[in-house]
């Protein structure tokens, strides 16, 4: 699993830094998911160093960190680099939204006025076909249906996340959304269930999804 990110337009990032009066920067670049998506890693770090320096920002430090999204890892990085952190106005983060928030959460106690910015848009949890081809196949809905749908997720492969598809928008196995170029998720489910001789599962009337646990802040706490 990879959290898929894409690059924000450079100007958008530069504008937000200028608007926030940022001059001295610490860059944190994700060495895992963002590196794979070519939005972070060593290359991303060098690219942003160059861009920011050219625009007159001072890069106090720049690091590739393996688990930006892991509070423990970030806390360690921050401890080791406290001298540099004292000097900066902001972090610029080449990661997903989790990485950014991990930095906010780990710095905000010691440096309440520290600003943290992000260069990427976070797209989805992705399945990798190859580098540069990632697909959303799970939304983390909290109540996985794959055992009932032949291993194909209706939440992500159906444009309407229907529980009882296909809808009237299906034409020759394709979905109305996206100009009939993508497969209709419910036809994929039908084909799979037919292949494994479980059309009984396809015929089942499914209740609407229960949002009572997942329609708001979520956390997993078991210790």
């Amino acid at each position: 699993m990879v959290v898929i990110t894409t690059k924000k337009p450079v100007d958008e990032v530069l504008n937000v830094l200028k608007e926030n009066n940022v001059k001295k920067i610490f860059i944190v670049s994700c060495g895992v998911c963002a590196a794979l998506c070519q939005t972070g890693g060593e290359d991303g770090l060098n690219e942003w160093k160059e861009i920011l320096e050219k625009e007159g920002f001072e890069i106090v430090n720049g690091l590739v960190v393996d688990d930006v999204c892991d509070n423990r890892e970030m806390a360690k990085v921050l401890r080791k680099n406290s001298e540099d952190i004292e000097k900066i106005d902001a972090f610029v983060t080449l990661s997903c939204g989790l990485g950014v928030q991990s930095i906010v959460e780990t710095t905000s106690k010691k440096y309440p006025s520290m600003k943290v910015f992000v260069t990427n848009n976070t797209e989805f949890m992705g399945m990798t076909e190859r580098i540069g081809r990632f697909y959303m196949r799970c939304l983390g809905c909290g109540d996985c249906l794959l055992n009932e749908t032949g291993g194909i997720c209706p939440i992500t492969t159906c444009a309407k996340a229907l529980m009882n598809g296909p809808c009237g928008g299906m034409v020759d196995g394709k979905c109305e959304v996206g100009n009939y170029e993508r497969d209709c998720g419910w036809v994929l489910i039908y084909n799979r269930l037919k292949a494994i001789d479980r059309l009984d599962l396809f015929s089942k009337l499914r209740d609407a999804r229960d949002w009572s646990e997942s329609g708001h802040q979520r956390e997993v706490v078991f210790r």
Binding site: K160, L162, M163, C167, E176, D207, A208
Partner: peptide, 20 residues
């Protein structure tokens, strides 16, 4: 789907489906 129409930026709801 809203995506097909003239307010494609509108949030698709589909909390229920036609059967539910």
């Amino acid at each position: 789907h809203p995506n097909m129409g003239d307010m494609p930026e509108s949030k698709p709801v589909f909390d229920l489906d036609s059967a539910t």
